[in-house]
Design a protein around this nucleic acid. Structure first.
Lengths: 153, 153
DNA sequence: TATTGTTATACTCTATAACTATA
DNA sequence: TATAGTTATAGAGTATAACAATA
């Protein structure tokens, strides 16, 4: 990870300072770093946590459905599920209604890790939002949700 | 790029919906896609545009200073500058004050591409923010700027 | 001693295309 | 015909560690 705390003079970023894309990028990198740090204990990445949450909230969901919900290709999901299965957190069961698809479930250990991870993820969020008041943090999430609803709605 | 416009039923993303990190990630992917689409004409990526802007706003800046300002390693900058130099957009000049470092400048073509790119980048931003009112878009950037100031301040 | 640019290397995340087995 | 899971492959983007030249 590059040095973000350096006491060097702040370089003028020019018109970048008015670009939403730039600030979204910086904020996302910051959020991922805080998330990863907060989740150390579980060794679960942001992407993996998304998958665990989808499965926890939709028992028996298929790999393709998880991929669609998270906005990635289903081929990308294979290795992710492989990793979670190898760690004993997720189980691929045969779907009772479609012999092509896997019904994904959390193992007991997966459920534990997920529940613990949810608390830790909230800690990461709090650190990311530490420069904002509670009200501002809520405002930010509300705006982001609205922005995103345009694409996955 | 995965299908984000599918008319499939929306899967319940559970507690993800309350995580700032999740929404930042979705928004950033959306913003990058819109940026890339808007910039097609220039064939300049978000990362490259950041570098062009830094150089435009700080003529003679060093590679290390660009890297620090953008929050990446200086080793990462080498290939980026190489690419921009090979396209004839950026020039590495010897620094007049430090024989270790390069003084980066935009070529005339680089200046042109940068100025055109800035307009196109704003178009990308507008598309990203299309679900928000003007006031909300400003609010969002303000909040993100405040959030980010905590790390690069 | 510290910093600049560089190289070599590797890792993560992701996409595309094609295959198979089902639906 | 279309979809689910899979494989093989490739491309961004990035980091770490080391080195020579210079500060």
């Amino acid at each position: 990870m590059p040095d973000t705390n350096s006491k060097k003079q702040n370089t003028n970023v020019g018109p970048l300072n008015d670009l939403m894309t730039y600030h979204l990028r910086r904020a996302q990198v910051c959020a991922f770093n805080n998330f990863t740090e907060a989740m150390t204990e579980t060794q679960v990445t942001p992407g993996q946590f998304g998958v665990l949450t989808l499965i926890a909230s939709n028992k028996g969901i298929s790999q393709s459905a998880v991929a669609r919900a998270l906005g990635v290709e289903r081929s990308t999901m294979v290795a992710v599920i492989d990793g979670l299965q190898n760690r004993g957190l997720v189980v691929r069961k045969p779907s009772p209604t479609d012999r092509r698809s896997n019904a994904l479930e959390l193992s007991d250990k997966g459920q534990e890790i997920y529940e613990r991870g949810l608390e830790l993820a909230k800690n990461g969020d709090r650190k990311t939002a530490s420069a904002l008041s509670d009200e501002e943090a809520v405002q930010l999430v509300t705006l982001l949700r609205k922005l995103n609803s345009a694409i996955d709605g």
